[in-house]
Write a protein that binds this DNA or RNA. Structure first.
Lengths: 170, 170
DNA sequence: CTCTTCATGTAAGAAGTTACATGATTTC
DNA sequence: GAAATCATGTAACTTCTTACATGAAGAG
């Protein structure tokens, strides 16, 4: 149930509406835990029912500003420290690799070349946004930078691996 | 719909029953695309309805041996070459990082230390199974080794990143 | 007054998880 | 004869995706 905790995490920085949260997801968690609008509103409803968040204020256009409760904060902390991250992260990019023997070698190489290029693009993109996240001094920015560094290193290794893999196919 | 293609991929190596496939998933795809037994049997039924596999033989205890059809093979190839791998791979390990500011620094360091240790364990485990997969000469083994190399490099970078991240927290 | 942004929701379906249920065959 | 392995399935529930639906408020 990570979406729930992603929402709690964002609300732990301060109150926000579903609309605000959607934008926050897009700028901060989109590469780690993307969420759709319908999922988000549904989750906020369940979170409120469970008493982990409350509607702290209502604004124009039916805006509901949610705030995390003490119980919600406790649940967030419990999840971070006591719940083991899932071992497996599915990758349909890697799944295809197992079956590259079913297509002609030149096609298999093209597939790996493409993955190397895509990884290089992601790398360039992240390098590009780096200067814009250097400045923030709040926790989300500080730890966001650590997460960004992970993305950078991951893309790097993906690019190198894909290039190596391409060279392995005769 | 990657599960479908994982099944087609395994069947492209030769006929197998649901039970056989379950074992194959466990030894080859468990870290890339795990599947549960109930998912597998349901998918085989749908695949047969769609004409992508057929029941090639029946054995004792109601055993049904499935074989991929020409349509199934075409669909597998189409998926590998024409369908873009999904951009995002969710990681609840990384999601927690964004919210480490909500727990005391020593706890945050412990979390990252734990992730470094887990990555080191995975690395050691993969190094351990490496000799056993060196030998296979079929496509699934050859490409399985390339996938294993990915796992190795990924674990390595995860370990290094987690150690670095730990050092970043004052 | 028109366009953009803000704002919340519902519905249908696909995919994944967990638990239950059953029984035949082989091995020791 | 008991235990392990082989073998298939169903049911309930959670999670995620895609598409639809509606409308108020602010900016120019």
């Amino acid at each position: 149930m990570s979406l729930r905790h992603a929402v709690l995490g964002l609300l732990s920085e301060g109150p926000a509406s579903g609309y605000d949260l959607m934008k926050l997801f897009d700028v901060s968690l989109s590469n780690t835990w993307p969420a759709t609008q319908s999922q988000l509103y549904a989750e906020l409803g369940k979170l409120a029912d469970a008493g982990l968040v409350t509607v702290a204020a209502e604004g124009p256009r039916g805006r509901k500003e949610y705030a995390i409760t003490e119980d919600g904060l406790a649940e967030l902390r419990r999840w971070i420290t006591d719940v083991e991250p899932t071992r497996v992260n599915r990758s349909d990019m890697l799944l295809r690799v197992f079956f590259l023997g079913r297509i002609p070698p030149e096609r298999a190489r093209a597939y790996l070349r493409e993955q190397a290029d895509l990884a290089a693009e992601r790398l360039a993109h992240m390098e590009g946004i780096r200067p814009f996240v250097e400045s923030g001094t709040d926790d989300l920015s500080r730890y966001g930078r650590i997460a960004l560094e992970y993305g950078l290193r991951l893309s790097q290794v993906q690019r190198e691996w894909a290039e190596w893999a391409e060279s392995q196919i005769k």
